[in-house]
């Protein structure tokens, strides 16, 4: 019975690892990594039950506690990289302005904003709202 369980778990791990290897996008690999972590946790649980050795239970505890951080980091990274792409930046608004103005606006929207520039303030407000939308 337990040999059957072990064989099923190994087959599941092989399938998930195959998706981890061939996954076309990074998010596929993140999903497969989560599934692989849970398969490994199931394997450790079965091993613990069969052998009656509770030494690996803290390992399962740590995996349950920290296993999600990897995929969260990957997902966050992917979102930020998409955001830095071309879909979000409204370039037509900046047409005809010099590079110094653009640099000032970009700096000003994130750190100290230049005082007394009402027009650029309006632009930055809209820009900030639009950037926040896709986060």
């Amino acid at each position: 019975m337990m040999l059957v369980v072990a064989a099923v778990l190994i087959a599941a791990g092989v399938l998930v690892a195959a998706r981890l290897a061939i996954g076309p996008s990074t998010l596929d690999r993140a999903v497969a990594l989560d599934a692989l972590v849970s398969v490994i946790m199931a394997g450790i649980g079965v091993y613990t039950a069969v052998q009656h050795v509770p030494f690996y239970l803290p390992v399962m505890l740590v995996l349950a506690f920290l296993g999600f951080t990897g995929s969260v980091a990957i997902a966050r990274f992917m979102t930020l990289r998409d955001e830095a792409g071309t879909t979000d930046v409204d370039e037509s608004r900046y047409a005809g302005k010099s590079a110094d103005t653009l640099a000032e606006q970009n700096v000003g929207s994130w750190s100290t904003r230049p005082k007394g520039r009402k027009g650029s303030d309006g632009n930055e407000g809209r820009n900030g709202g639009g950037r926040r939308k896709n986060r």
């Binding site: 369980v5 099923v8 998930v16 849970s38 398969v39």
Partner: peptide, 12 residues
């Protein structure tokens, strides 16, 4: 445990 392993296989 067999049911859990079968769900893992379903995931794979």
């Amino acid at each position: 445990m067999l049911l859990g392993a079968l769900l893992c296989l379903v995931a794979g």
